[in-house]
Design a protein around this nucleic acid. Structure first.
Lengths: 129, 129
DNA sequence: ATAATAACGATAATAGTTACTATAATTATA
DNA sequence: TATAATTATAGTAACTATTATCGTTATTAT
């Protein structure tokens, strides 16, 4: 019901998400955007990140260790999460479209989508051993 | 280095996890185990749930809305999470073994495992509409 | 039985996130 | 362009989930 209004802070957050190839957490976004808006509030970052997710302009990625990351790339793709450092990395594996139907066999509900996360050790952590 | 000692509370938590077909949160486990141990501490529940996960006797399931669920079924399988009520349900889809290799193409790291979560509307929520 | 040590219950502390409120920025209207 | 209406912000308080602390209790070894 309420109308969306432009804000420079939100624009900056969106730009940061789209330009960064890593998948920043809310706190990382906060630190990054503070370069441009030194006294932006952490609450503003959270509010806008959630808003962008609701608008479909960003994706929320939850990792098992509790970390929540954000991704400006909204086209469906899968992620890798390093068991050692927790970093989240894009994978090139194309989305498995038919798998939703396969999962729906013998299931009394509607399956619309899925997310997949791969785990292991990233390049950086392999080296530092 | 420290030696594991038996505790009746941990046994009760393990039993509850194995006997329940739903995937309780820490708080649900807390409420359940209180039937048998009325003054068990929530901290004890958390400590033991994490311990069981570390021992490989339980699995932690993180959902995007922030809820953390636990599963006593440790054999690899996939889950469905209802977008409306948040309930987590087991799926019968057998694990995709070869997909780890497929995901590892053009990836400079080691992929060891993956987790997959399906989303949509559960049977119960379909009815109540 | 006694000693050693891990686990417990109770509670405090922490981390991540959301809610609140007065002020500032944006948009619509005259 | 000035003014009014309304959303967004910064700053802070509050909240939720989880972990840490610590004196006491339960379990295990001697």
């Amino acid at each position: 019901m309420t109308v969306l209004k432009y804000s420079r802070q939100r624009e900056s957050i969106k730009e940061l998400l789209n330009s960064s190839c890593d998948h920043p957490t809310a706190d990382m976004v906060y630190m990054g955007v503070r370069q441009e808006f030194p006294n932006i509030s952490l609450g503003t970052v959270y509010r806008n990140l959630n808003l962008l997710v609701d608008l479909g302009e960003a994706v929320k990625i939850t990792t098992p260790n509790g970390g929540v990351h954000f991704d400006g790339r909204t086209a469906p793709h899968y992620h890798f999460c390093c068991n050692k450092c927790g970093e989240v990395i894009d994978l090139e594996l194309e989305e498995l479209g038919c798998i939703n139907d396969a999962a729906g066999k013998n299931f009394d509900g509607i399956i619309e989508s899925h997310s997949m996360m791969f785990y292991g050790t990233c390049k950086k952590c392999l080296k530092s051993n």
